[in-house]
């Protein structure tokens, strides 16, 4: 549905930010973009959402090159949304409801419809219980969920998440993970996540692109990518721990920890017999 073809992006001063990048978001419903600080992940997202226009190459949306005229960008962005890293920079109202409704009101959606969609979004991020507290009383994790609700209320088809768990404690991280998983599995959204947390990427994403100094230096199923030592090393990344014990302790590769523990218990029982 959304695809980037040979995109090169250049900063105003001539520095190359992205070089000949091709990414096809139809490869999976949950795609990870990994790379070190400054590898170009944010610039990539800005190109994908039409905020920046590539120097060369194309963004293809439903097979057609993206047009950068105001009306077509407007239509495009009804389908594509992005949650930025810092919730403080994307929450504009002191009232949670008004903030989530911001995008819908700008589009002129009726208040009845808005009510339904805002409440649905609140439920999906489990924010209903604090939705009538003023925003400045909320914790960082709660603000993050409000920011996510503001974007998913738009019911976009493709959602970008820039470092969705940075600065969050383990519990909230888990709840964000669940939101991401439910968006891609149950809601049929395409979820694109950039993160430094390799465990998050491993838990949430099916397909991964590795970005290094503005170039894609690897792509593949998440289980395959994290087995490539050289690739990870040259891009300054590390392995999720489930991959570590697979590589170093000889366990089979499991997608989540409960599978691992099940396997372990099964093996133990068999040995007993």
């Amino acid at each position: 549905m959304l695809e980037m073809k040979n995109v090169t992006s250049i900063y105003e001063d001539g520095t190359v930010a992205l070089k000949d990048i091709s990414i096809d978001l139809s490869k999976s419903k949950s795609i990870g973009i990994i790379g070190s600080n400054g590898a170009g992940k944010s610039t990539l997202f800005l190109n994908f959402t039409g905020v920046l226009k590539p120097k060369s190459g194309q963004i293809l949306f439903r097979g057609k090159p993206l047009s950068y005229s105001k009306p077509s960008l407007r239509e495009f962005r009804k389908e594509v949304g992005i949650v930025f890293q810092d919730p403080e920079r994307q929450i504009f109202f002191s009232n949670v409801y008004d903030d989530i409704a911001f995008g819908l009101r700008n589009l002129g959606v009726s208040e009845d419809e808005i009510k339904i969609r805002v409440e649905d979004a609140l439920k999906r991020v489990e924010a209903a219980e604090f939705s009538n507290k003023p925003v400045h009383f909320l914790s960082h994790g709660q603000k993050k969920r409000v920011a996510i609700a503001g974007v998913i209320s738009m019911d976009n088809k493709v959602l970008f998440f820039d470092e969705p768990t940075a600065g969050l404690d383990p519990l909230v991280t888990k709840s964000v993970e669940d939101i991401l998983l439910s968006l891609s599995n149950k809601q049929e959204k395409t979820v694109v996540v950039s993160s430094h947390d390799m465990d998050l990427i491993y838990n949430v994403c099916e397909y991964v692109y590795v970005l290094n100094q503005g170039q894609i230096i690897g792509e593949g199923k998440v289980e395959d990518i994290f087995l490539k030592n050289d690739l990870l090393k040259s891009s300054g990344l590390n392995e999720p721990w489930l991959v570590k014990i697979h590589k170093n302790l000889g366990y089979p590769l499991f997608k989540n920890e409960s599978e691992l523990y099940e396997y372990h218990n099964r093996m133990k029982n068999e040995q007993k017999k």
Partner: peptide, 12 residues
């Protein structure tokens, strides 16, 4: 710039 972008992407 970031605030502006977040607003713009939500049709502000």
């Amino acid at each position: 710039l970031e605030i502006y972008r977040a607003q713009e992407l939500r049709f502000g």
